[in-house]
Simulated assay, not measured.
Amino acid sequence: MTGAAATGFASAFALILAIGAQNAFVLRQGLLRAHVFWICLVCALSDAVLIAAGIAGFGALVGAAPWLPRAMALAGAAFLLVYGALRARAALAGGHAIDDATATQSLRAALLTCLTFTWLNPHVYLDTLALLGAISTAFEGAARLAFGLGAVSASFVFFFGLGYGARLLAPLMRSPRAWRWLDGAIALVMWALAGGLLASA
Rank of each mutant, 00 (worst) to 15 (best):
A18P: 04
L172H: 00
A134I: 09
A90P: 07
A178N: 00
C114K: 08
A134K: 11
S175I: 03
L126K: 04
W119G: 05
R144E: 13
L115S: 12
G141S: 12
F139P: 07
L115G: 14
L115V: 12
A138L: 09
T7W: 06
G3E: 14
D100A: 03
T137L: 14
I186C: 01
G57R: 00
L80G: 10
Y125D: 05
L74W: 08
S46V: 10
A88W: 09
C114T: 15
D183P: 02
G133K: 01
R174D: 00
G54F: 08
A138H: 13
L61G: 11
A14P: 05
G63L: 03
A78H: 00
A60S: 11
A10E: 04
L145N: 12
G165C: 08
V26I: 12
P69V: 12
A24I: 00
L169F: 00
N121L: 05
A101N: 11
N121Y: 06
A4G: 10
R177A: 15
A187C: 06
L27S: 00
L115N: 04
M173N: 00
R177S: 13
V26E: 02
A110V: 02
V189W: 04
G95P: 09
D183Y: 02
L81D: 05
L197Y: 10
A60M: 05
L81E: 05
I51N: 11
T137H: 10
M190H: 02
A142F: 10
G30K: 00
G196V: 09
A18G: 14
G133Q: 02
T7Y: 06
G133H: 03
I19H: 06
A192Y: 13
A201R: 01
G84V: 07
G184D: 06
W181Y: 12
D47E: 15
S175M: 03
L126W: 11
T2K: 09
I51F: 12
S200G: 10
S136E: 01
G95Y: 11
L149M: 15
S200L: 14
L74V: 15
A65E: 09
W67S: 04
N121Q: 04
W38L: 14
G94Q: 03
R167N: 09
M72S: 10
S200Y: 13
A166N: 00
R70M: 12
G84N: 06
H123R: 13
V124Y: 13
L188M: 12
Y164Q: 08
P176C: 09
R33W: 01
A53H: 01
F79A: 13
N121M: 05
G3N: 13
F79C: 11
S106I: 05
L111R: 06
G8W: 03
A146I: 07
G63C: 08
T118D: 13
A88L: 14
A34C: 14
